[in-house]
Simulated scan of single mutants.
Amino acid sequence: MQRRHDIDALRVIAFSLLILYHSAMVYVADWDFHIKSAYQVEWLQYPMIALNRWRMPLLFMISGVALGLAGIEGRRWRFAGSRSLRLLVPLAFGMLVVVPPQTYFQVMAQFGYTGSFAQFYPLYLVHGLCRGDQCLLTPTWNHLWYLAYLLPYTLLLLAAIPLLRWLRERLGDAEPNRLAAALLLALPILWLLGVRLWLAPRFEETHALIGDWTVHAESLPLFLLGYVLATRTGFWNWAQRLRWRTLGVAMLAIGMELGLRWLGHHPPAGPMPEWTLQVPWYTVERVARVTYTWMALLAIFGWGRAWLNRPFRWLPYCSEAVFSWYILHQTLIVALAWWLIPMRLGAATEASLVVAGTIAVCLLLHEGLIRRIGWLRPLFGLKPRPKPTA
């Protein structure tokens, strides 16, 4: 297996950002979440949008890159069995053990449920709870939906390896020429634009796997593309060389999207100029959105290769820990917020304690229990501990 320190580091960073993102969901105004603080602000939407546009596309593309670097072609069906087990076990454990507490706090906060957790858990296992026409279907995977999607994506990739290898060989190892570079810049944007203009209005993003066509159309191609590009040295050199330009275009695109969003919420007083009525602003905003997504991914990969492709001392530990932190973090966020919100500590203090508490408990549980107890490791996606050498 080839070792790409920049890809490992980007994976750690991307998963780490989930703690900040999901903590901020408690405080961002007008966005639904399992539990909401009294301290909600609208301005938080803008950095959240800037992060949200690429955080999951990055994770899916990194997952594809990791498979491309793993050299699985000669053992793909054996790998299918091991990968299925490594994803299904923590997913099932998460749904049965880790997720129920956050769902319990949610039904208390949103549905006014007053029973104990022991009374709630059988309801969680069987059919969930309803309030009027609003129902919470359980069991649920909540934030663990990424694992539920990664498994079928991986099996599809393994089945398509002959075609994907052919595409990879056609790309070659040289840097893209002008035509290939133009296609690498334009085709993903055009695909994502089609998803946003055609699929997204028809199929709401549900994270329910079945029928979630908008998410599949965005995530699966990026996952497969990551596999195809994983070993193409020319592509990574090209992304690194263009990193300033892709960063600049990404900043312009997100500035346009957020600017149009702000104007939509705060229209200027007085009549609008005639020419503005002729502009298809929805399409312009969608173009800006998808341009930002792809340019941000290219910039992240380019800057990651420039700055992160070295064996940091912290990287092996964090690469192992990130999976258990991912499984634990949202339940800890919801539990801490439920405990802190009634104290009325102030926005900065409350939010800081939610983030710091989540990090501290993740560290304590991973370091003190998960990585040290053999039977816990597979429940959190960790490989078995290596046997000591004689």
Results as ranks from 00 to 15, higher is better:
Trp236Asn: 02
Ala159Pro: 07
Glu274Gly: 15
Ser63Gly: 12
Leu376Pro: 05
Leu308Arg: 01
Pro271Glu: 14
Ala360Leu: 14
Gln330Met: 09
Trp339Met: 13
Gly255Leu: 08
Leu332Trp: 00
Arg11Gly: 03
Gly304Met: 07
Leu328Phe: 02
Leu364Ala: 15
Thr283Met: 12
Ala182Asn: 09
Val228Ala: 00
Gly112Val: 07
Pro90Tyr: 00
Ile210Thr: 14
Ile373Trp: 15
Glu169Met: 14
Val126Ile: 15
Leu220Lys: 04
Thr114Trp: 09
Tyr292Pro: 01
Thr154Asn: 05
Arg53Thr: 15
Arg344Met: 13
Ala348Gln: 13
Thr154His: 04
Met256Gly: 13
Gln45Met: 15
Leu155Met: 12
Leu67Gly: 00
Ala14Val: 02
Leu192Gly: 02
Leu59Thr: 01
Trp238Pro: 00
Gly172Tyr: 04
Ser219Asp: 11
Met95Asn: 03
Leu376Arg: 04
Gln45Arg: 15
Leu379Tyr: 05
Leu328Gly: 01
Tyr27Ala: 03
Arg310Ser: 13
Ala269Tyr: 08
Arg196Val: 11
Glu175Val: 13
Thr331Lys: 02
Gln278His: 15
Leu137Gln: 13
Arg168Leu: 08
Gln106Asn: 10
Trp31Gln: 09
Ala180Asp: 07
Phe111Asp: 03
Gly234Trp: 00
His127Leu: 13
Gln134Ile: 15
Tyr113Gln: 04
Pro47Val: 06
Pro201Met: 12
Glu218Gly: 12
Ala50Glu: 04
Leu164Cys: 06
Leu151Tyr: 06
Leu298Trp: 01
Val249Trp: 11
Tyr39Ser: 13
Asn52Ser: 15
Arg241Thr: 09
Ala186Trp: 10
Ile19Cys: 01
Arg289Gly: 04
Arg385Leu: 14
Ser319Gly: 13
Ser16Arg: 07
Phe79Arg: 09
Glu350Leu: 04
Leu224Met: 11
Ser352Leu: 14
Leu382Gly: 00
Thr331Trp: 01
Leu315Asn: 03
Asp173Met: 12
Leu158Tyr: 03
Trp325Gly: 03
Ile254Leu: 05
Gly304Arg: 04
Phe312Lys: 11
Leu382Tyr: 06
Pro280Ala: 10
Gly64Ala: 08
Tyr292Met: 08
Ala148Tyr: 05
Arg286Asn: 11
Arg232Pro: 02
Ser319Gln: 12
Gly94Val: 03
Ser319Leu: 11
Gly74Arg: 15
Ala148Ile: 08
Ser219Glu: 10
Gly234Cys: 06
Tyr146Cys: 02
Arg76Ala: 07
Leu298Val: 10
Thr154Asp: 04
Ile49Gln: 12
Leu85Gly: 12
Lys387Pro: 07
Leu10Gln: 02
Val107Glu: 00
Pro280Gln: 06
Pro101Gly: 05
Val12Leu: 06
Ala299Leu: 04
Arg78Gly: 11
Arg377Tyr: 07
Trp198Val: 13
Leu167Tyr: 07
Ile161Leu: 15
Gln134Leu: 12
Leu197Glu: 08
Pro378Gln: 07
Leu158Met: 12
Leu332Ser: 00
Ala217Asp: 03
Tyr124Leu: 06
Arg4Cys: 06
Phe105Asn: 01
Gly74Phe: 11
Ser352Ala: 15
Arg261Val: 07
Ile35Asn: 05
Arg131Asn: 11
Glu350Ile: 03
Gly194Val: 03
His266Trp: 10
Gly211Trp: 08
Gln134Gly: 10
Asn142Thr: 12
Trp307Ile: 10
Leu277Met: 14
Leu151Val: 08
Arg83Trp: 09
